[in-house]
Design a protein around this nucleic acid. Structure first.
Lengths: 343, 343
DNA sequence: TTGAAAGCGCTAACAA
DNA sequence: TTGTTAGCGCTTTCAA
């Protein structure tokens, strides 16, 4: 509206009888300015209700003090497992301790998202970016590696000159889950995985295989299906799995949402959970503790994931850290959906 | 990093043998530039991998094409009712259809949040702001009304020269809920409200009163307690309420989260829901359909709330609309937590 | 149809 | 300790 009213350092300079340079220095806390002058300037600035123009500052300093957020998960589906939101919470929490603000980019492309990752970031002149929830075949991903924009990836293990990442140990997490099922006496353990374009899926599958191997249980690839991280797709896959191989007594799901779908499928087939089928999930989403039966699962600290990502990125930006990989611990949560195999 | 590599219109001008003015006009689609020249310029721009500098543009144009988001709900508690997130989803959805980006401000003040609302916005030069989840006694709120920054409020009915709002009809929503309970035969209906610094609480209370009145049921103020929109506080309040007035057969809760707490309290007191106590919530959060018993509730279209807020704001910014109030419909969702009173 | 010049608000040499 | 000057990358009169 009244742009005319916006005070600038020029106004302050005039009002306090000094040059703009001095105002700039005074306001930015430089030491080479007379204390009296500084006090005067600060007072005038307050009277005139001055706010620095970050655009102008950014233009000359070549840094905007903003971080770009590229998240694919701002949509209906991701409301259920609010993974995206929880990570965001963590990012925001750390950012709040700094003078960086967050810029949300609109990647959920309405049709012709013609702008590339780099363009998005370069145009807004973000100092760095956090990327989350994109598939390994996403064109954006290649760009990240090539571009020279400092960046932290969530759950995508790529490390370069200016790209770091934060993730959990998915192999170990899956091992915990499957070991647990074996400890409960299960031998016929299937897996509902996500999809082939997710690193976490690769790793969780590896964990599954590892445990089977060390228990000398034969790996059967037809016992591993992809549920696309969706409740409905997982339900369908679980149905097929359970119909084809009724001898399965336990299923490891690569996400809680898919575990929910899996349980639905079992129930529709007349198999009660956990009595006639043990199910363990992954993530520990909010729903996990509220559904009946409550979900045993591998918990990820999602907020910490976000917090660490923001922290790493900002440290990189401030030259306090090199890009690195941060691995967050997971934890087995025992609830009701998996129990000892009855014989 | 390699800031030196950033192409500017100056580079393009040099490479294509024209002035920066012409480049600017060509790239911005002005008509007064020769088609041949334009093609040349665009080609060069692509070759040089040009991205416009939004900081520079914003500085001269006095608009940043960004929208500030002031949300108080980026924290652990708000993960349960992910109201905040769903609204954000809607905002993002509309923004994605435009060329505006979203800037998340860190209002969840770590101690000394010394910056005011206006400062936040002015510093970043956001063109407008969407404010959500702040209490009516929040100092930010007064500022909004005073400041000349275009702004849309979510669930706070204030309209001024440059402030509009989006909300649901909370009076009507509450009326639907309480009417429903009465239709089910209940006469002893209590209410668990939020807190006194929420407009929605005032309005829902009004709706509650309205229905009682038209049913000639006496309003008892000791039957209305505040649960602060929190599950635990509501549980405590519900316990006190039910212990003091065992004749209560139904409770209207001003949020689903509080309904959850309320149900817990009832169950701990040995009253089963819905058989011995009917409970109806408000919001229709994700959990509502997953818990047992599932929650009957008044559904708000949260994504639409956000979508409409973003739409209104951007229309205001583009001069296509004046600030106005938008009211979104609510809907009664019948599930399991409220049933006909048995006699 | 094009270009020269000015200026958005700020910071940063360099001089004084 | 302070001021002068230049310039960040862009848009926009105004003149040609």
């Amino acid at each position: 509206m009244e742009e005319l009213l916006m005070t600038t350092i020029k106004d302050i300079a005039k009002a306090s009888g000094v040059s703009v340079t001095t105002v700039s220095r005074a306001l930015n806390g430089y030491s080479d300015v007379n204390e009296k002058t500084r006090r005067k300037i600060i007072e005038v600035a307050e009277v005139l209700n001055y706010s620095p123009n970050s655009l102008a500052r950014g233009l000359v300093m070549k840094k905007s003090k903003t971080i770009g957020l590229l998240v694919s998960g701002f949509n209906k589906e991701s409301i259920k497992d609010n993974f995206t939101f929880e990570v965001l919470t963590g990012i925001n929490q750390f950012a709040a301790e700094t003078d960086y603000d967050l810029v949300l980019f609109n990647t959920n492309s309405s049709k012709q998202r013609e702008k590339t990752y780099a363009q998005l970031c370069k145009e807004r002149r973000v100092d760095g970016a956090i990327i989350q929830g994109i598939k390994t075949d996403d064109p954006y991903l290649k760009e990240v590696v090539d571009s020279d924009i400092p960046c932290v990836l969530v759950d995508i293990p790529i490390k370069t000159e200016n790209v770091g990442y934060v993730t959990t140990d998915n192999v170990l997490g899956a091992e915990k889950a499957v070991s647990y099922l074996l400890e409960l006496g299960h031998r016929h353990v299937a897996m509902i995985n996500g999809h082939e374009f997710a690193f976490v899926s690769e790793e969780r599958l590896q964990g599954y295989k590892n445990v089977l191997k060390s228990a000398t249980i034969k790996f059967r690839k037809e016992w591993v299906v992809n549920g696309l991280f969706q409740e409905s797709a997982a339900e369908e896959q679980a149905r097929i799995l359970l119909e084809s191989f009724p001898e399965i007594t336990a299923i490891f799901c690569a996400s809680d949402l898919m575990a929910l779908g899996c349980i639905k499928a079992a129930q529709k087939l007349g198999r009660t959970v956990p009595e006639q089928l043990s199910v363990i999930g992954y993530d520990d989403i909010l729903l996990a503790s509220y559904v009946t039966p409550s979900l045993s699962t591998i918990a990820q600290n999602k907020a910490l994931l976000g917090y660490s990502a923001a922290k790493l990125l900002i440290q990189m930006l401030e030259g306090e850290a090199k890009p690195q990989s941060i691995i967050i611990e997971t934890e087995l949560i025992e609830r009701e959906s998996a129990i000892r195999l009855s014989n």
